[in-house]
């Protein structure tokens, strides 16, 4: 089972830069196991916006928003990962939407879900975004 991670523009490029992108990878690798992590390319400050920022999710141009997100879709698809971790709210909504729209096979999850799963403290009702492979793990 493999995982990739989206770099939220607001967190990385627009505020704390590559240092926080590295911190993010430290946490993700610690949680899922380094050998199960596949980075998307480009990444960190060079990563692409998912297309959900700037108000786009409420912007009233859904076709264009999804066309914008096609680049993100292909990036995630190229990793072959089973899960895309989105540590930002807007990213989660947009990546979840484009995955469904363009027919991606991966699941889109919040980072907090996987942290709690790895700590063995994720409750039964807190698993809405996990796939069947992880949905009952540790219950």
């Amino acid at each position: 089972m493999t995982f990739t991670v989206q770099d939220p523009c607001q967190l990385v490029r627009k505020s704390l830069g590559d240092d926080v992108a590295d911190d993010l990878r430290f946490v993700v690798k610690t949680v899922v196991g380094e050998e199960n992590f596949i980075d998307m390319h480009p990444n960190r400050s060079n990563n692409y916006c998912c297309g959900g920022g700037g108000g786009a999710l409420q912007g009233g141009y859904p076709e264009e928003r999804r066309e914008y997100g096609r680049i993100k879709f292909r990036q995630i698809e190229a990793t072959g990962a089973d899960y895309c971790i989105t540590p930002c709210h807007n990213c989660h909504s947009q990546v979840h939407d484009i995955t469904e729209h363009f027919g991606g096979a991966w699941h889109t999850v919040h980072l907090w879900t996987l942290i709690c799963l790895s700590l063995g403290i994720l409750g039964e009702n807190e698993r809405a975004y996990l796939g069947p492979d992880l949905a009952e793990l540790g219950l």
């Binding site: 627009k14 060079n46 916006c49 700037g54 928003r65």
Partner: peptide, 16 residues
């Protein structure tokens, strides 16, 4: 132009 509402102001253009 409607484009200003499709751009997410993500700053990747500025970055490069």
């Amino acid at each position: 132009t409607d484009w200003v509402w499709m751009c997410t102001m993500c700053q990747r253009c500025t970055h490069v």
